[in-house]
Nucleic acid binder design. Structure first.
Ligand SMILES: [Mn+2]
Ligand SMILES: [Mn+2]
Ligand SMILES: [Mn+2]
Ligand SMILES: [Mn+2]
Lengths: 218, 218
DNA sequence: ACTAATATTTAGTTTTGTCTAAATATTAGT
DNA sequence: ACTAATATTTAGACAAAACTAAATATTAGT
């Protein structure tokens, strides 16, 4: 697969929410920041290669073969993200762009050894699970912080919005993956939340809360 | 620069033996495993971009700008090779192909942090020097083990005699290409040498020493 | 069911990097 | 200096991946 083909496969995978939904040409175009006509061209080629199922005007989905490729790419992307954060001191809002390039490096040994070097991590710096070599991975049950009952305590495992501004906000407020968060109280007026994180009590807007995923432990 | 352009720049750099010699179209074609006509096309484009000096029928050389790019690529290539050997347990004959891909990843922070992670290495696994961020690097020379001053350390990069008996001897004594060798002391009587190789001190005859090449950073 | 809005595909170009075959320049041998 | 061999460039073509503009299909509103 070429770099371009691989990026399309990943886009179709992500738009299919891991359930291999059929996705529209326009959705892929938006995700890839390209034109719908370019998507049509590429999707025809991927169909010829047996990577996707494509019915004109009806959308596109991955074949079994296509899913395997997608999972392998996701694995590589997330392992590289872990490497960048754990070994090269990148912050979690800097890794995506570089991993987007590194995921295309062709070497099976490279990724096996990287996995080992990192101690076989289960999740990437954004809390997303890393598929095994065989393409299996644990579904993490995530809920956004604003939809759990008061008194719930859990571990921050991910974000919905991973834009640099949001990630920077989290850094500034010392909210990081792996932190234990306790939801204390909801402000009736604006739906904002009081939470306890690492011994300190902070106040976050409902919008912030809705973008933070919690893995509930109790 | 595109991946293709970068590979051409590196080829011209290497053919120029680091002295920026003017090289022929055919030489570049051979190095790149492509056709001379393709080289002509690319060289014209690189000339337009100010990367090379090109006179039709007279050959091509790098401009100052082109040399900077070449050194940056060589730096990246060699740092990745060190990473693969030191951190991911690749052997020295497996790294080139992968480094050939990794050298094209675009991220200044990535390479700075990688350099730091590796402890600012001076040479790659093949004994070749790693240019600094500014493009400076030490020259290396290849000498047979019996003609270097005592106390010299270098990387074993080749053999003069490659007959099975000699190679078997090397195997038996755990001397392999890529090993770092330190010359400790010469025995006056027979010119034999005491050397240190991977934590162990061994004794080799002058004849053995004369058949081993060392790459030394000067 | 008809029409308008939207989504998608088709047709025709462009850029990049490659190739083959033909033309031309350089070099070497006599 | 002439000729033959070799090196290099030019011309024309192609595949990949993108784009714009036009055509067509789908969908939603009345
Ligand atoms: Mn990518
Ligand atoms: Mn991630
Ligand atoms: Mn390369
Ligand atoms: Mn090397």
């Amino acid at each position: 697969m070429t770099l371009s083909e691989e990026d399309y496969i990943k886009a179709i995978y992500h738009l299919g929410k891991g359930e291999n939904l059929t996705v529209s040409t326009n959705a892929v175009a938006e995700q890839m920041d390209t034109k719908p006509s370019s998507v049509t061209d590429m999707v025809k080629k991927l169909s010829d290669k047996g990577v996707v199922n494509y019915k004109p005007y009806k959308g596109v989905s991955l074949t079994g073969y296509g899913q395997k490729i997608a999972l392998s790419l996701v694995r590589k992307h997330r392992l590289w993200e872990v490497f960048l954060v754990e070994k090269l001191d990148f912050s979690w809002d800097e890794v995506h762009e570089v991993a987007e390039q590194l995921e295309h490096i062709k070497s099976e040994k490279l990724i096996d050894q990287l996995d080992k070097h990192l101690g076989y991590p289960q999740v990437d710096p954004h809390g997303d699970p890393i598929p095994s070599k065989k393409g299996e991975f644990k579904k993490t049950i995530k809920k956004s912080l604003n939809e759990v009952p008061m008194g719930t305590s859990g571990i921050c495992v991910g974000v919905k919005d991973s834009s640099p501004p949001f990630l920077k906000f989290l850094d500034k407020n010392k909210i990081a993956l792996g932190d234990t968060i306790l939801v204390l109280e909801k402000e009736e007026f604006d739906g904002s939340l009081y939470i306890r994180i690492k011994e300190s009590k902070i106040h976050i807007s409902n919008q912030i809360a809705s973008n933070l995923y919690l893995k509930i432990t109790a």
